[in-house]
Simulated scan of single mutants.
Amino acid sequence: MTDAQPQPLKAALWMCGAIVSFVLMAIAGRAVQVELSSFELMFWRSLVGFGIVTALIRWRTGTLATVRTAHWGLHLTRNVFHFLGQNMWFFGLTMIPLAQLVALEFTMPIWVLIMAPLFLGEALTGKKIAIALLGFLGVLIVAQPGVQVLNAGHAAGVLAAIGFAVNLIFTRRIMLHDTVLCVLFWMTASQGMMGLALSLVEGFTWPSAALLPWLGVVAVTGLTAHFSLTTALGLAPAMMVAPMEFARLPIIALVGVALYAEPLDPMVFLGAAVIFAANVWNLRRGKARNQLPARVDAR
């Protein structure tokens, strides 16, 4: 965010676009996995995204020179963890209610806080530990171990948040050297190859004609969600944008009720509120120290 005057109304409109994109991606992701594995889904999503990003680069610059990078290690690490996080997120879509998955995903900034000492050499202070403990209390309220049966979907939701957190840490480091289009080019190229390789190990399945529109929705919304969220963060501080992102939870919960007859569990909302409080505390801490606070999402 620059020193320009914040534009919260424009940021809110862009966040509406991000929320719509994430919701459509969740619906399409469930539809696709009726036939395809999450690895195959990632391959087709990346393939379509690669075509779109490449065409955009050629249209804007007339050359692919912008994709050159001297930081292969950073890109590789970022994309391995992003691939992990995105696969776990798509897998979790099929295992637990949408609201639970999104609530667990919202722990991503807490994981950034915890892992920053490992990857960035930051000190792990008592305040950071307290923020992390508050966030994990929210996770326990959402998952309700001992009250309801935990399954692989809950673990997938947490692993998705961890993958997105490491992805965000390395994205920040890469953006010191490379452009957004460079990051997106190598993301779609490398994750497409990872998805294809793992799909071939499992046994590759060609999608039916009826599935092609859903695959297109997953690919396009993945890019529009990222673009909308990034634009919103350029128009207003993270302290304004973060609460807008949390509006995704009640919306996705209502989608789960309407399309999949999922129950509205008040404990999920209570746990999400605790996670939200931990994230706001983290954002205020970062603002007080003149640090860039963790973004709400890193996909």
Rank of each mutant, 00 (worst) to 15 (best):
N290M: 10
C16A: 12
V20I: 13
G222E: 00
M15L: 11
M187T: 07
W14Y: 11
G256T: 06
L98K: 02
M108G: 05
V53Q: 07
L181P: 15
R58L: 14
T107Q: 01
Q191Y: 11
F22D: 01
L254G: 03
G126C: 12
H226R: 08
E40S: 04
I110S: 01
V23S: 08
L259Y: 13
E245R: 00
V80N: 01
A26Q: 03
V268T: 10
Y260I: 04
A99L: 09
I96E: 02
R68V: 00
S199Y: 11
T69Y: 07
L159M: 13
A70G: 13
A165Y: 07
L36W: 13
H75N: 01
A103Y: 08
P207I: 11
G195V: 05
I57W: 03
L36Y: 12
T188C: 13
F119A: 13
V67M: 06
G157D: 01
L200M: 12
L76C: 01
R295E: 15
I110F: 11
A236T: 02
F246S: 03
F83C: 00
T221V: 03
Q148I: 13
F50C: 10
A155C: 09
P207C: 05
F106S: 02
T231A: 10
A242E: 14
A197Y: 04
E202Q: 14
A70W: 15
L270H: 01
